[in-house]
Design a binder for these strands. Structure first.
Lengths: 213, 213
DNA sequence: TAGATTGTTAATCGATTAACAATC
DNA sequence: TAGATTGTTAATCGATTAACAATC
């Protein structure tokens, strides 16, 4: 049995739908049509219906979609209601910021522990325990780890990623490195800040050129 | 005169080409073919040639591409050689992490100043001055600001973004908020951590389902 | 029943891939 | 000259948009 492959574009739009539906819900709106969603989000109603229908039929003809119900369905598809375990590797400024501030719960993820080569600075990061990196295999033997958050310095990134292979299912990669040698069955999701800033830079330049014409 | 619109997919691939070319250069490789790039990066040679030809003809028939030269051309397209000025707004853990650790220089950006509602914690963030947010308009009058990096708490995000409109050309948005009311001539580039983590979560679940079959 | 809006099929558009003539 | 590989045009594939029958 083969589930038809759903495009990454669709998956990346789902959180935006959810955010919009949450705004509506907070305003007390109970129903919404694909037309209204499209209007607000700058998409076509067609695309929205197509996107939703990748996963099932969540609406009702002549009525539209129930805001709370639709939100719940989409949230469920993305695993927001799950409880995956995560560890964070590398507790520099960025690792610390993510560990302390990011709302893992909203994404169905629980941050369980942090690891660093120099854990001397303290025994905890926020509310989670901080261990020496050389304890990671022992930790993983006792505690299943779904996701490893990679916030180590770039030169250490690929070696660390390879070291994680035996015991993780996904790597959330914040290093500026294209990870190599990770098998197919492990998902890698990159957050490359510089790619994003360079795109910003490019589009700003385009805007300036357009204005000159 | 109308420059033909180049798709975001292409723009987002350019930094990856550059990273790969830098690796090659550091290994002393001087020439490379689209076939070799494709092999290494998991793309088709066709796509690579199409991507490059959006911007010009950088290769030589029968030879391929000069690694250093091609890298320089692509870097230039993305504005990596420029020197745009940026300020960062909101110096919590994330803002601090970005201000202190991110290599702005590599992206053609210079971080000039930081702003916060509670700048009392110190007069500097890393090497840049830290001001009270209420000084931002005065600062912008004296110092041109290309990019504002938005790392304020979510509830403050949209108001702050709107306040930036008169004096920025681009907003690098790290808040978990879809910014509204920003005019067309200002570029917004989002870094939504949660979108990325939710995608990771989704693909992990898909992998698990596949393995069961 | 009439009106509204979905779910879904068909048409269009754009991006990727293939093919090949140009040329180094 | 022969071989290699680009730049570019044509073909294919996939994603978005349009249309409309189903139905609440």
């Amino acid at each position: 049995m083969k589930t038809k492959k759903i495009s990454d574009n669709v998956i990346k739009r789902l959180p935006k739908y959810i955010r919009y539906l949450e705004t509506l819900a907070s305003l007390g709106v109970t129903r919404v049509s694909s037309d209204e969603i499209g209007e607000q989000m700058g998409l076509t109603a067609s695309q929205i219906r197509q996107d939703f229908n990748c996963f099932g039929s969540f609406g009702q003809q002549g009525y539209g979609y129930n805001v709370v119900e639709l939100r719940a369905k989409l949230a469920d598809i993305l695993g927001m209601t799950g409880s995956r375990s995560a560890i964070i590797i590398g507790v520099g400024n960025l690792g610390r910021a993510i560990a302390k501030n990011f709302s893992f719960g909203n994404c169905g993820v629980i941050l369980k522990a942090a690891f660093d080569i120099h854990p001397s600075e303290g025994k905890n990061v926020g509310k989670i325990p901080l261990y020496n990196i050389n304890e990671i295999e022992a930790y993983a033997k006792e505690n299943p780890v779904d996701i490893a958050i990679l916030t180590v310095p770039s030169p250490a990134a690929n070696d660390m990623a390879v070291r994680l292979i035996p015991f993780v299912k996904g790597i959330w990669n914040f290093t500026n490195v294209e990870l190599n040698g990770i098998p197919e069955n492990i998902v890698v999701e990159d957050v490359h800040f510089s790619d994003s800033l360079l795109a910003l830079n490019y589009y700003m330049t385009q805007n300036e050129l357009e204005e000159k014409n």
